Amino acid sequence: MPELPNIRWGIIATGLISSWFVEDIVRTDRPEPQATHTIQAIGSSSLQKGKDFVAKHIPQTSPAIYGSYEEVYNDPNVDVIYIGTPHAFHKKNCLDAISAGKHVLCEKAFTLTAKETREVFETAQAKGVYVMEAMWTRHFPLIKAMQKVLHEEKVIGEVRRAFCDFAIFQDIASKGPESRLKNPALGAGSLLDIGIYSLTLTILGLEPALGEKKGAAETPAVRAIQSLSDGVDVSTAVLLLYKDGRQGIATSHSDLKTGDDFCRVEGSEGTLIVHGPAASVPSSFTVVKRGGGEKTYEFERPGRGFYWEADAVAVDIQQGRTESPVMPWSETIRFMEIMDEVRRQGGARFPQDER
């Protein structure tokens, strides 16, 4: 058996999403790993926070722990920087890591605006480093199987429309004005936080996998409405209109909770329903044929499933790529442009929109 590629990670920020990521990529019970992962360095706003993070989430490891992000960027033993900060800091974090010559995996939403996203990718291209948006759900075997069933096998015939909702009760009213969930300068709002998953599953239901498309991916026409509180979208509803008549509806809400069946794709010969705790972590899907009969597809997922995107990064870098074929730069830009347009129509604004 060929030796699996190994990646040495530098982790930026010690919040919830970073804890999920590091716990997952060091698991030893996951199916068919494509790479191995070393937590090489942790960067936090304070040395003590970094030590507490390691002790709580990855006590079996012995990374270098730094009280600044810059020390992680400059650590010669780090291959890739994982960025788990709030959206508003992603641009700066990416540019700083790229400047140090590091590869980057940056959490979604990649930045606040498409303009910021283009700046990061232009800098990465000039530096010759690998960068990918960490839309982890795209790397799930379930998503790949769903797209094969829909667009290659055409089990439900011609796909005509898709719906997806992601709602989670975040108790935003109780948060202080500087919370990332309440402060527009930090990218607050349901759209960038969770609505991006609704958009992703809706579009993946309507479109074949990127490698199967002929030519550039179509950017559908957008119609959107948002409900705002103090300038922050509590809810967003997006209608996507394709030239051939396909329609998508993607919604998000920060004051409700979606049920277990959060996505459905409708075709000329049946329906596909996606199940799970949330649109970010689908666990199964069921195909219901128009003439009767149904089949449920189940998928094993120890932990949360962040290791699939981490493996993809390792394999891409080993093969000399600077972009992911699953989440290329053009796709990140397309989604950022769609979300910019949603906010333009819906009314949610960030201070960074004027820059």
Rank of each mutant, 00 (worst) to 15 (best):
N6Y: 02
I7L: 15
W9G: 01
G10A: 14
I12E: 13
S18N: 11
V22W: 01
P31S: 06
Q34I: 02
Q34M: 08
A35C: 12
T36K: 15
T38D: 11
Q40V: 03
A41L: 13
S46A: 01
L47Q: 12
F53A: 02
V54W: 03
K56V: 00
I58A: 13
S62Y: 08
P63L: 06
E70N: 06
N77T: 12
Y82Q: 09
G84T: 07
P86C: 03
K92T: 02
K92C: 05
D96W: 03
D96S: 11
A100S: 10
G101S: 03
V104E: 07
C106A: 13
C106K: 10
A109I: 12
T111C: 04
A114S: 12
E116A: 02
E119W: 01
F121H: 05
V129L: 10
Y130W: 11
Y130C: 05
A134Y: 13
T137R: 15
I143Q: 10
K144Y: 12
A145R: 12
Q147H: 05
H151F: 09
E152R: 08
R161K: 09
A162V: 00
A162F: 00
A167R: 10
D171T: 05
I172S: 08
S174R: 08
S174I: 13
K175F: 10
G176H: 07
R180K: 15
P184V: 11
P184Q: 01
P184G: 01
G195R: 07
I196E: 05
Y197D: 00
I203G: 02
P208R: 07
P208E: 02
P208V: 07
K213N: 05
K214Y: 00
A217N: 02
T219P: 06
A221Q: 09
Q226I: 05
S229H: 06
T236F: 07
V238L: 01
V238K: 00
L239G: 09
L241V: 14
L241R: 13
G245C: 05
Q247E: 15
G248I: 06
I249R: 08
T251R: 12
S254R: 11
L256D: 15
L256R: 14
F262M: 03
E266D: 04
G267K: 01
T271S: 06
L272I: 08
P277C: 14
A278S: 13
A279V: 01
V281M: 13
V281F: 15
K289H: 09
G291E: 11
G292E: 00
F299L: 02
R301A: 02
G303Q: 06
G303H: 00
Y307A: 11
E309D: 12
T322V: 15
E323L: 11
V326W: 07
W329I: 09
E331S: 03
R334F: 04
M336D: 14
E337D: 09
E337R: 02
I338D: 05
M339W: 13
M339Q: 14
E341H: 13
E341F: 05
Q345P: 08
Q345S: 04
G346M: 08
G346Q: 09
G347P: 13
A348G: 14
P351L: 13
Q352C: 12
